[in-house]
């Protein structure tokens, strides 16, 4: 293949072929509710940390399904587990347990991230 020489800046494209599948399937095993999201954004809209953080569960779920956990995990840092998102979710996702489970399933990814 011809190399056009643009390799200095990393590609902005999501490469689904390289998506992290094992971590995601482990997560889906611990908390199958992650598969129920229809991306309505209610959780992000009602998040009680909206004034000071970037917490956005819809985005986190979406990014994890795309294998972009590097961008997803830092968003969870400001979560206070208040449970408002559980109350508003139209699909009845157990969001609090999902957040805890994400932290658990991606512990390794998070550790390497911090290094």
């Amino acid at each position: 293949m011809i190399n056009f020489g643009f390799t200095l800046s990393p590609s902005s494209r999501i490469d689904l072929d390289k998506a992290n599948k094992p971590d995601f399937s482990r997560l889906a095993e611990i908390e199958p509710d992650i598969l129920k999201c229809m991306a309505c954004g209610s959780c992000a809209a009602s998040c009680s940390t909206v004034n000071f953080g970037k917490m956005n569960l819809r985005k986190v779920i979406l990014m994890l399904t795309r294998g972009e956990e590097k961008d997803a995990l830092p968003l969870l840092e400001t979560c206070v587990l208040c449970g408002k998102c559980t109350m508003v979710c139209p699909r009845g996702i157990n969001t609090r347990h999902l957040i805890i489970s994400i932290s658990e399933a991606y512990k390794k990814a998070q550790k390497t991230e911090r290094k």
Partner: peptide, 13 residues
């Protein structure tokens, strides 16, 4: 058993 591994409430002013 359950502690969230990372958190950052510094932005909360």
């Amino acid at each position: 058993d359950k502690a969230l591994p990372a958190r950052n409430y510094d932005l909360l002013e």
